[in-house]
Design a protein around this nucleic acid. Structure first.
Length: 284
DNA sequence: ATGACTCATTACATGAGA
């Protein structure tokens, strides 16, 4: 199974690119962030015509997440339990959607930006990450969940975990994304039993997933690595490769983020996404 | 060239993004 995550920065502006990406890469499950539209505005027909199911979660032009799958899309959850809200708003923002796709519980996550250190949005970001970590830990706890569960937490984490995940540390000295509390909140998922597999398979420094639109950041390769995939042990064991699709930052009207693609080895009795029958089924 | 922000909105200026 091929699983990708992409902060698409408006799905309505990028729908043709997104479908072309699915077809070019043979991606089975795509987790989208920053769709920037309500559910009724989501261009689902274009994905359905390409053979995918769609589940969306969006209230307005802000935030918005979705899951697109051709290997099943079941038990959709919009928001995670205990997900914090911001300010006076009633209920959580559209920053998390989960569904079971091809046997994997996939969560498309758009972690709050934080805006500025000390800002209410910064405290919200830390609380949001902590609440998600508590939930995710419970999903693997034998008392409340299943240690063998197949879970993938993918998306835009808005944290640069290492100094080499930003192009110039000095530029970010007083800014969000690199502060110790944010990095600690991110690292806590490791303690909760998850593995950040994009780092395992792409360990090189300065392999960015985001470049600002301004000031020639992409041509100069001045970016940030902030899109990641924390997966449970069952999924980590199946992850054979990860690709940061830098080519998607090129050409006309790109998103400022690029997709990150995970290859998961099949567990067995399932028809291949390309239509090829399982070797096991052929042998039987 | 991978090129000087881009997106959305009861839009024509403003907020958000990171």
């Amino acid at each position: 199974m091929r699983l990708a995550t992409w902060n698409v920065n408006s799905v309505r502006s990028r729908v043709d690119r997104a479908v072309a990406f699915l077809e070019r890469t043979g991606t089975d499950v795509l987790a989208l962030q920053e769709t920037k539209c309500r559910d009724d505005q989501f261009p689902r027909a274009a994905f359905e015509a390409a053979g995918y199911e769609v589940a969306t979660f969006g209230f307005s032009q802000w935030n918005g997440v979705a899951l697109v799958s051709r290997v099943g899309l079941d038990d959709v959850e919009r928001g995670f339990p205990t997900q914090p809200g911001f300010g006076e708003a009633p209920g959580p923002e559209a920053r998390a959607i989960g569904a079971t796709c091809g046997g994997v519980r996939v969560w498309s996550l758009y972690v709050p930006h934080g805006r500025a250190v000390g800002d209410p949005h910064y405290r919200y970001k830390l609380a949001w990450l902590d609440a998600l970590r508590t939930q995710a830990q419970g999903w693997l706890d034998p008392a409340t969940g299943d240690p063998d569960a197949a879970v993938a937490l993918v998306g835009d984490w808005n944290v640069a975990p290492r100094d080499t995940d930003v192009w110039d540390l000095a530029v970010f000295a007083d800014q969000t994304h690199i502060t110790p509390p944010e990095r600690a909140a991110f690292a806590a998922f490791e303690s909760a039993g998850y593995t950040e597999v994009t780092r395992v398979h792409v360990p090189q420094d300065r392999r960015y997933t985001y470049w600002d639109y301004q000031r020639l950041r992409f041509p100069r390769d001045e970016g940030m690595r902030i899109d990641f995939a924390y997966v449970s042990p069952a999924v980590a064991a199946r992850t054979t490769a990860v690709s940061i699709e830098r080519v998607e930052r090129k050409g006309k009207a790109p998103s400022d983020h690029v997709p990150v693609v995970l290859d998961l080895a099949d567990t067995g009795a399932r028809t291949g996404a390309d239509g090829s029958a399982d070797a096991a089924a052929d042998a039987a």
